[in-house]
Amino acid sequence: MGGWTLSEIVQLLLNGLAAGCIYGLVALGFVLIYKATEMVNFAQGDLLMLGAFMAYALIEHYSMNYWAAFLGAVLFMAVFGYLLDTVILRQVIGQPQFAVVMLTIGLGFLFRSGASMIWGTETRAFATPFTDGVTRVGGFVIADVNLSIVIGTAILCGLLYAFFRFTRIGVAMQAASQNQLAAYYMGIPVKMIFSLVWAISAGVAAVAGILLAPVSLIDVTIGLIGLKAFAAAVLGGFGSIPGAVFGGLVIGVIEQFSGIYLPEGFKDVAAYIVILLVLFARPQGLFGNIGRKRV
């Protein structure tokens, strides 16, 4: 650690955690959809991008206040996700996995082109209550945007936990993901439940996009973060919700530190090196249970 002060290391750690939260949220979206429907949604990162642009549009074009735009964009994306499942993805149920993969990759392209037609390809930004602010805790200076990402993620995870643990719909989602046939005869409308899972995933992606916006600014390619989030989901075990968030945090932190301690260029590939190592050493991931998946 020669030459680095504690303050700088803490700073790096916080930056890493903030980035990791975003990966974690996108990874959580992957995992939710995968657990429920056994589909891998490669357009998850692009849902994040659309969520950020929706908030941008509401703030800049409709001059809404940040919080109202936040809520509006998340709700819009949730409805969007619901319709995506009912109108498009339900058509490929029963088709080979490959069809779903191609379909969601295709949808990702569609979303990026759609966004660039509406909002152009230049980088956009909107003002948030956190932009440029700092909070001093003890001797450390923390950027408010990073703080907002960490706190926002914590609140969202808490809400999701309560939702899955206590609510009728949340429990129904867990049931439907374990056994669809049995779920039907417990009175669970399985198809609607799956669409709601898509709605939640898209809503979570939108939250991630809006929290990320002041840090990375918005353009049509920010959805590529989905690739690193995919690595996070694999690290966590691809079937585990806490695993996804934890995997995101690990990758975020590793990325920050490899940018400092390893030669130039390692920062961008750190996530993929981690995914390779995980696949070699522990293919089921840290929290994984894919090995005992129902057949």
Binding site: Q178, N179, A182, Y185
Partner: peptide, 22 residues
């Protein structure tokens, strides 16, 4: 099918359909 339960009809399966990880 999901409204069958609400009506008051329940069923079991020949090959057992339970929530195995619960």
């Amino acid at each position: 099918p999901h409204n069958i339960a609400n009506l008051g009809i329940a069923r079991t399966f020949q090959n057992i359909e339970l929530f195995e990880h619960a």
